[in-house]
Design a protein around this nucleic acid. Sequence first.
DNA 1: CTAGGATCTAGAGCCCGCTCTAGGTCAACG
DNA 2: CGTTGACCTAGAGCGGGCTCTAGATCCTAG
Lengths: 144, 144
Amino acid sequence: MDRAGPVEFSIGEVASAVGISVHALRFYERRGLLVGPVRRTAGGRRRYTEIDVDWLRICIRLRAAGMPLTALQRFAALVRDGPGNEGERLALLDAQRERVEEQIRALEQAREIIAWKVDTYRQHLEGGNGGALWDPAADREANG
Amino acid sequence: MDRAGPVEFSIGEVASAVGISVHALRFYERRGLLVGPVRRTAGGRRRYTEIDVDWLRICIRLRAAGMPLTALQRFAALVRDGPGNEGERLALLDAQRERVEEQIRALEQAREIIAWKVDTYRQHLEGGNGGALWDPAADREANG
DNA sequence: CTAGGATCTAGAGCCCGCTCTAGGTCAACG
DNA sequence: CGTTGACCTAGAGCGGGCTCTAGATCCTAG
């Protein structure tokens, strides 16, 4: 096929390309996040393909959204086991989609709570009234 | 003021009301999440007021959105120190708002990635074509 | 008055997700 | 050819956030 350019990268290159440490890369590998074994040089050094890097980027984005390593590991395992378990993969993805949406809702609630408190403080600071801005704690101060 | 009904709750009542364990409640207290010390009975049992409970509910929602205990602790500490540091409180809140919004963006990206994979698998399952659905791993399978 | 459940404190234990270390090996450069 | 820096493995260490335990005390119902 394309014997011309089977572009490959060292672990260090991949680390700086995807933005995690070489330690984390090896750690992910131990945890089975990669679908297949990474190619090695004669001397034993890892050589990542662009496919590996793409997959790692996806993993990292999903991790950044709080997806646990075990979920990524399970998905990788299903893919590793080859065709025939697409239903399971879909179920796993669906569960994660659900989790992500729940988390978004939680964050939106948090944002509202914070926005409301920020508003309160901002009014307080602008208006300069010393007293009973709402805040469970401030209430307590006011009352006792 | 309202000596009629200074409603108070045991730790067990609070735990089931806010949805965390009594252990977690004591743990939060040790970490300084509460603005003031909880009232105690003669015998040393905690008696939470509704204000305490409201504040705990807020903390729990913020925690659910990934806010670290240290942030909640710092905010509580500022409130505890009394009026005069509203600017600092505001800064803290702003930083957390920023963090929450970043996190929402990360989650939305994750949602897109997942949605796209789900679509791919769904088409695959419906169409029943065995082959090269995109997926870095599937690619690899297809290629070798 | 007694039994049993709720609560108390302080600290150990646990899971997650890395990060760092020790003690080597490899390989590119001068 | 030697040096230097990236890389190797396996495992220890760590911070966050609880959870659980031991051993004692409280208190409410019977």
